[in-house]
Design a protein around this nucleic acid. Structure first.
Lengths: 143, 143
DNA sequence: GTACAATCTCTAGCGGCTAGAGGTTCAAGA
DNA sequence: TCTTGAACCTCTAGCCGCTAGAGATTGTAC
């Protein structure tokens, strides 16, 4: 396999061209060799590193976490516990987020249920926004 | 009730001072009157408008949606259907987000379950990131 | 040789704030 | 009345993870 241009790499890994350059800029991807005309050329290693990054981003890891995971993956003899901790930390934040959003969903559903589909004057949606205390009181929930 | 300084408004509505100035800047809050020394002073109307904004932000509405909701709330004789639609649209996006995050959560849990807590060399977490195909195959899921 | 797609660098923008510098005003206490 | 000093002011820049665009250069297929 010959080296890839940034566009070919982009198509192969499904990461946009400016994003690849951005990853290089922030040090997630190493500086690649260039052609005489200063265009980037990527080898197999860059492909798998970028794939790693993309999968981690798909799983919602932050760039800093990915940086740590990448450097761990380069140390095969170390214990994998630090990687474990990173994943656990992320899982917990995802779980917290899901809980928050579930509360939100309930709240929004109530708003829609209560709406009488009449005029703004008597619209519960607008009323709830204008005076949230009322909402809490009526539904007996703490928001 | 006399007019409030921006700090008093901030404490009363639980919105930070720079955020209030930001809302003014983007036109969510009207330009308030000033003292002779150019300090902002807020009346009761500003308090309730800011409360409205805060509740809507707490419910995850984007600024543009809030702008629409605010202008609807100023037209009590109009049908409330547009407000309805905004809330529904938001609810749907919250629901989509919850679904995405639930898939993510499952994925992360699998990663942790599969981890043998040994060396990075044999760590499933790192392997899954390095080669996602393997993961899909083993769990029989499409990610 | 020529056309033109792809690449290059650089800067700015997105949303929704937040932080800090450096200067001014207000209000309470002496 | 004067003096602190907390609160206010404006302005710019930064956060995250990209994305978009301008304007110039390079690579490649015909």
């Amino acid at each position: 396999m010959t080296d890839l241009s940034i566009g070919e790499l982009s198509r192969r890994v499904a990461v946009k061209v400016p994003t690849i350059r951005y990853y290089e800029q922030i040090g997630l991807l190493p500086v690649p060799p260039r052609t005489e005309g200063r265009q980037r050329r990527y080898g197999a290693q860059a492909v798998s590193r970028l794939r790693f990054i993309r999968h981690a981003r798909d799983l919602g890891f932050e760039v800093e976490a990915i940086r740590e995971l990448l450097s761990l993956s380069a140390m095969p003899e170390q214990p994998c516990e630090p990687a474990d901790r990173i994943v656990l930390r992320h899982l917990e934040s995802v779980e917290r987020r899901i809980e928050q959003l579930s509360l939100l969903r309930a709240e929004l559903r109530h708003m829609l249920d209560d709406c009488t589909h009449g005029q703004v004057r008597e619209c519960r949606i607008i009323q709830v926004l204008a005076d949230h205390e009322q909402c809490r009181h009526e539904h007996g929930r703490t928001v």
